[in-house]
Design a protein around this nucleic acid. Sequence first.
RNA 1: GGGCCGGUAGCUCAGUCGGUAGAGCAGGGGACUUUUAAUCCCAAGGUCGCAGGUUCGAUCCCUGCCCGGCCCA
Length: 458
Amino acid sequence: MTAPKHFRDRVEIASVRAETESLDNGAAAAAKRRVAGRVLGRRDMGKLVFLDLVDRSGRIQLLCHTAKTGEVDVHLGDIVGAAGSPSKSKRGEPSVDVDAIEILARIRTPLPDTFHGVTDTEARYRRRYLDLLMNEESRRDAILRARMVTAIRGYLDAEGFIEVETPILQPRYGGGFAEPFVTRSNLLDQDLYLRIADELYLKRLIVGGLEKVYELSKDFRNESYSYKHSPEFTQVEWYEAYADYTDTMARCETLVDQVARATIGGTRTTFRGHELDLAKPWARVKFVDALEEHGVWSRDEEELRAKLAGAGVDISKDRTWGQLVDHAYAHFVEPGLIQPTIVYDWPIELSPFARTTDYDASVVERFEAVVAGMEFANAFSELNDSEEQEQRFAAQADEREAGDAEAEPGDPDYVEAMAYGMAPNSGIGIGIDRLAMVLLGRDAIRDVILFPLLREKG
RNA sequence: GGGCCGGUAGCUCAGUCGGUAGAGCAGGGGACUUUUAAUCCCAAGGUCGCAGGUUCGAUCCCUGCCCGGCCCA
């Protein structure tokens, strides 16, 4: 006998469960319902067999009287379909009083311990399917992440943004400070890079007149894992013509506020031991003021070096003023920003794509959004003057020369595009994985990535 | 990259002052008409991460390596 190829007209278990609510203990409704899912519990009384059936929506008990159903040849982990009436057991457990049950897919490898599930971290990452099928919390997280992404799309679509797709394989990489993955095209006989950001292509679309664009993208950075870093991660980036970074601040707050409500029903969450409230508006602090507060701000490289060394920071690997100030920010400021905070107006050295402020040519209109000491968004008033962009790339080349391997490599083709005229615009990148971590209260980025990259098991 | 912790049955874990290992659940066989981590009986299940070393003897002690976690850089 071959296994069935379909089981039609099924309803979700949660809806059948709801139907049982008004029933008395031991009673069954007249209605007939079809449910399907995986058997994760079996209590065999001989002529009466209790099964626990689980689908994406929930769990319900199946009452199988063998007089009606025949022998219940069902093992833990089998995928079955059952037809019967919503009912309550004598003890009041929501159930389906089964008329007929059929095996839709047989389990061949025994299920893990149905009480403890799979708890070994490595096993959960390597065999996520087991984690998902055993652990309701893992299923919930996967579903909520999807709901979060849907809410992000919904917001941007409703605001008139166009979702676009730009290259993952790029002849040049750029738009962030990171080491790329390098690959090779046989056709072109040249090296290609997996994108580290979408920025430069999306802004070409601003030149092209698409005005408001966004992309939900997998980006790749050839670096090690941490609780907030994954070599393969997801961002949403958007760019909006005729807007500056203050407009983008407001959008970022609004989007996160709305997305949180759509995903977890509110703006409060617990993440890494912190009680957080993502409701807008968020705190704002100027980059320079924040560093000054900790006594680690100076425009002079040697003075800054001395201040950091005096504060006990290991600055032996910092070759440039830019690296020093970045280190100072990461060490003294970022970890202390717990509630959502917008850190704005950054040094020009750290921001080759942002326009300068009106009050200081060495400071640019850039902000990062931080929560629980973790950056989750980065935005600018985008530089739209091709000649200035060329100079910024040159300055980055100097940084690179001075020993900063992650400095922007430059992109003449992008400069050429900008020379055709780019509307003033502002853009942002928001870390989807990090936002998911915060909303779901998961402490590690690997807990919100279904199949995190791991070393091959030896 | 550094420090600490871990890897024993399919899963969750125990254990061996160094003498070739146990439990619960799952899987196999059987009993049971209201259970819900059901219960009861029977049988079975292992390269103790890998490789060396010490030893009469190593899963246990030592060294190296592999894989993972946490913290730090």
